[in-house]
Every structure is written in C-alpha cells, then in structure tokens.
C-alpha cells in the first residue's frame, strides 16, 4: 500500500496535516479539501485524552496490518487550542499509560516487516530535553 500523502506534511519536522474552516475556525482531521477550508499543520505536542488497547486482530478487509497480531495501544491526544485526534500510542508499556500524560508526535509503520508500509501517526511520552 502506498503512503497516504494527505496525512503528513512533506517537510521536516514531522507534522500532521489538517484543515481549518476559514469562517468558523473549526479544525478538521483527517485533512480534506473543500470550499472555505485551508490546509494547516497541527502541533506536535499534547496530552492524552483517552485510550484503549486493541487486543484482537481487526477484520480484514479493511485492516491491512500483519497477519501475526500483536496488541497495540490506541489513544486520543488533545492538541492544545486545536483538536483531539486519534492515533497509535508507542514507546510505552500498556500498564504505564495514563490519561493526562504529556505526549509528542511520532510515527509507526503499519507493518514493520514490510518496506514502505503505511505510516501511521503515533504519539509517545514526551521526552524532556536534558537540563
């Protein structure tokens, strides 16, 4: 599967694309084109709003992940002043996940064993810069 270019901005650092309604200011994710909408990039940092762990392999189609299933965490992350978005959670043990924790944007491949696999937005606990 080819990467969906409408998810991520193409320039570094990693950013997610979204749309903003010019009239109401409401932000829409995923990004879409339309009358009165402008393309924006979302902030990279936020706090965890809620989460769950997907423990069984979703049905295929539409799921296109690896045949051998390993559970993954899925969260909603509140980006301050913008929107709450759904994304994978990574670099954290399931039992260490807490609502309200600080998180930052990263990405995970849908299937790590396949080169060029679909890139999914993900959040990991914020790594504070060393003092």
């Amino acid at each position: 599967m080819t990467p969906d270019v409408s998810l991520f901005a193409t320039d570094a650092p990693l950013r997610l694309l979204a749309a903003r309604d010019r009239t109401t200011g409401r932000i829409l994710f995923p990004h879409r084109d339309g009358d009165g909408l402008e393309t924006i990039t979302l902030g990279r940092r936020g706090t965890l709003w809620s989460y769950t762990v997907q423990r069984f392999r979703p049905k295929t189609p539409p799921y296109a992940g690896p045949e051998a299933f390993e559970p993954w965490a899925l969260g909603y992350v509140e980006l301050p002043g913008e929107i709450i978005i759904e994304a994978r959670l990574t670099d954290i043990a399931f039992d260490a996940i807490r609502i309200g924790m600080a998180m930052e944007l990263t990405e995970v491949p849908l299937d790590p064993a396949v080169a060029g696999s679909l890139r999914l937005p993900a959040f990991r606990p914020t790594v504070e810069a060393a003092a």
Partner: peptide, 11 residues
C-alpha cells in the same frame, strides 16, 4: 479515508 480502515480503526 482508506488508511483509517487499513490501520485497524474501523472497530
């Protein structure tokens, strides 16, 4: 979009 289903979120 199709990626949303491919990611396993249509659950």
């Amino acid at each position: 979009p199709d990626w949303y289903g491919a990611a396993g979120y249509m659950v």
